[in-house]
Every structure is written in structure tokens, then in C-alpha cells.
Write a protein that binds this DNA or RNA. Structure first.
Lengths: 239, 239
DNA sequence: GCAAAAGTGTTCTCGGTACACCCATGG
DNA sequence: CCATGGGTGTACCGAGAACACTTTTGC
């Protein structure tokens, strides 16, 4: 049995949620879009997490420190890979900024692709190789849920960030607007979530205080996630 | 790379939480306790879920219908198995009643072992083979969390059950007492969680209405989980 | 009647929501 | 001074917690 690792790596660029995709450089699914990934090498001491971190570094140039990587699950349908029995362990990664991905490995290049948090798959230029559409959807759901319960949001931000930036993370990943005042109180009220650096930053308007991520990992009680507003059916994309 | 499946199967017997363990019938870890499990057969069409269901049926005699089985995660440390590179995918299973497990396969027999929901590992006669202590702890945490957010609790109950039985599931898995009145209102208030069968059952005291599990899968809002009361440090078992 | 368990009512409190309002900066 | 975003105050509402109380059975 062959074991691979696939990565669902999200970032926020230009106010929108993006996933890292590669265009496949070999069969099967040559030239189609897929999630970045690689093989678990049995002869090395890398476990799955190390393999995922290595792959991510290769694709994005980012080193494993200071970025979040977590296991999503195993995908094992017998016919998911035409080459034979391949089980893949999917990971979800979160990247703070907007570094251009580095091409390399068996991929012709990696690219940040915008996706709609309400409907992953919409906005994509077709479907992905293997069962990667499913993995992407599961990964998005995981991140959305983790934002509610864990102190994960700063992973999308630079080391120091304003409350607006943090709020935009939630709004972007969830696809809903939040109340500024209530978000502030909630975020600052959770013990150990945010640390006040003395600093402030001015872009436009009143200067904003800057925060660093605190030691807390869980959010008690959770960050409330508003019910998705009922879109009118804009076009297609229903189920 | 070899891929195996390990099972963390819980049930409630005699008012206590129990896990299914086997005594290993072969090297490595001969004669030690371990989680039941088996190999993913590359030549068959079974995916991991099917393999887990098959193993569970072999060990307990229970067929896959009407029992809950869900993926927990992959464990892949390079040195977790002395035979070489073995990645295992752990599953969590929930079994309703108290069927005696059937011995078979490569195990000398399977047994239900009581565990303390506050400290898995306490109460065990020593530690488990491989990294199964860790997997067991993760599995317990998963079930405890799932009870909060999903309509999983009836999986521990017979098809028809009273509210007391359901409440005892929560109390047993969480290891804390719940308020009878508030639990009742909460459980009945969640739309689609419980269906009223007309029937009642009398053991002692006033007859109780019986319910079946409804179509709901998520609990909105979650079943509130009380903070664990501070035990005085009874003895050891701290971290 | 009494014990035991099922089921109901009521009050208090706290967190979330909505929205009005004030503050600091750049132009 | 005004526009822009940062930050504070406050009144309302609903869910959860605690606990008193009533109902239905067996003995």
C-alpha cells in the first residue's frame, strides 16, 4: 500500500480566501489541478506531519515554524487512484501572508486560487484531480469550525496585528460580516487569546492597537458564528 | 509502508464506561493488552472504513448496521512499530449494549475493560502495546467532544430508550452529574433529536416515556458540558 | 401512605445582539 | 472641518443553572 500526504493550505490575499493548488506535471491527471502533496518515504524517519511540513516548505518556501499544520483525515477509497492502492492523509495548513509559492517537485508550479467560503468548488476552473474536491471541502469545513473553538485565527495574520485584521480573518473564512464592537469585546475578553503589544499602527483613521497571539489555544466560550444569511439563488451552485 | 486499522470501541456496561481490548497473540508485544485492529488488505476493495467495520464485527459479533464508527486519525511515528514502517488509522466505535466479545483472529480474546473518563489509563492493568495509550486517550476525548455537538449519544442506547438512560450516557462518558430537569428540556428542545414513541416503560417509580433517535445529526446549540469538578488529588494520575 | 423516579415551573444570571455614541488621526 | 476607521456604553433578549414542586407508579 502506498501512503501519500495531501495538503489543503489556506491563506488570505486581497481580502479573499485562497487555496494552494498545483498543476500536475505527470500522469495520472496530467495538467489538471490538484492539491499539493507527496509520498511518505518509508526509509526516512519522517512521520506524516514531518512529510507534510516538508512538502509545504517546498511549495511555498515557508518554513514549518510559525505556521499551523494539522491532520484532517485519511482518504482510502479503493478506486481513488488509478495506479493502485493509495491511501492519502490530508492535512490542513494556514499561511499568514502572501508569499508567492515556489514551483518545484513533481508539479509544474503552485498557485493561490480564490475560493468561495460558502461553496468551495465554485470559482474553481473545473474540478480537481483524484478526490481532491472532497478533501478541499472537508478542509474548509474544518478551518471554519476550528475558528469557532480554537485560537487559530492569528495563524492567518502577521506576528502583530490589529483587531480589524483579526476580524477580517473571521469574516473572510466564514463569509459573513461581524459586529465590530461585539467582536472586539469577545476577542479581548477571552483570557490569554491576545496580548497587548504597546504599539499602534496608523493607516487611515484612528491608529489601531496591535496585538500578538497569546498562550490560549481553546476559546471558552466559542467565538459565535452568525447563521449564514440566505443568499438569493444567484445562479446554480445549489444542492 | 504497511497500513493498519485500530479500533477504540466504547460501550456502557453496569453504569461504567468500557473499552474493547485484546490480549495480543503474537509478537511484538506478545500477551500484552492492545486495541483491536487489523491490516488493510491491498488486494480487496475494502477501504479503511470497511476494514474497521469488518474488524469490529469479528471482535464483537456486531454487524455494521446500527452502530457508529468514525475516523479518529492517523498515527505514523517512525518507531511506533518495531517491525518497521507501519501507519495506523484509528477509528472510534460506539456499541449500544453488552454483547460478549467474540475471540478470534490473531487475538487470544477480546474483553471489555472499564476506564475512568477523567483519566484513561487509570484503571488499566498497565499500559497498552504500541502507542495505543495515546490513541485511547485521543479516542475518549473525541467521543466526549462529539457528545456535545452531535446527536451521537443514542448510539450507546438500545433502539428505544428513556431520557434517564440517555442522560446516563452523558454522565458516564463525561464523568459528571447533570441536572435532570434541565437535561430533559434541552434534549427535547433540540429539533429532530428525539422522536416520541408512544410507549412507556416501568422499572421502579413512575413510568418513563420511550424515545427513538431522530433525524438530527448536529446539536444546535450544543449540549452544555459542565466543568469537571476539582477532584482532590486522589492518588497519582496527575500531569 | 411512603419511596422512587418522571416530569413541570420559576427565578436568577450571564453572554450575545443590536445599535447609538464618542475618540483620534489625516487631509 | 470632515471623512475614516478605532473604541465605548447600554438596553434588550434568550439560553443555561439552580432548585422547589407536582405526578405516577410499586410496595
Amino acid at each position: 500500500v502506498t501512503v501519500t500526504v495531501d495538503l489543503v493550505v489556506f491563506t488570505i490575499r486581497a481580502g479573499g480566501l485562497h487555496v494552494l493548488l498545483v498543476r500536475r506535471g505527470q500522469q495520472p491527471y496530467l495538467d489538471e489541478l490538484a492539491l499539493p502533496g507527496g509520498f511518505l518515504e518509508p526509509d526516512q524517519d519522517d512521520d506524516l506531519d514531518a512529510t507534510a511540513a516538508r512538502e509545504l516548505a517546498e511549495e511555498t518556501g515557508l518554513h514549518a515554524s510559525a505556521l499551523h499544520l494539522e491532520q484532517l483525515g485519511a482518504y482510502s477509497a479503493a478506486d481513488r487512484d488509478p495506479r493502485g492502492r493509495v491511501v492519502t492523509i490530508a492535512f490542513v495548513g494556514l499561511v499568514p501572508q502572501l508569499p508567492e509559492p515556489a514551483a518545484g517537485g513533481d508539479a509544474n508550479g503552485a498557485l493561490w486560487t480564490p475560493i468561495d467560503p460558502a461553496a468551495p468548488g465554485a470559482g474553481l476552473p473545473g474540478s480537481l484531480a483524484f478526490d481532491h474536491d472532497q478533501i478541499l471541502a472537508d478542509g474548509l469545513a474544518r478551518v471554519q469550525q476550528q475558528l469557532e473553538h480554537t485560537a487559530l485565527a492569528p495563524a492567518f495574520c502577521p506576528p502583530e496585528f490589529s483587531l480589524s485584521e483579526l476580524r477580517q480573518v473571521y469574516e473572510t473564512v466564514w463569509g459573513v460580516p461581524l459586529d465590530i464592537a461585539n467582536f472586539r469585546r469577545k476577542a479581548l475578553g477571552v483570557d490569554g487569546f491576545l496580548l497587548d503589544t504597546g504599539r499602534t499602527r496608523t493607516d487611515v483613521g484612528r491608529p489601531a492597537k496591535l496585538y500578538r497571539r497569546g498562550p490560549a489555544t481553546q476559546l471558552h466560550p466559542p467565538m459565535p458564528r452568525p447563521p449564514v444569511p440566505h443568499h438569493h439563488i444567484t445562479d446554480g451552485e445549489e444542492r
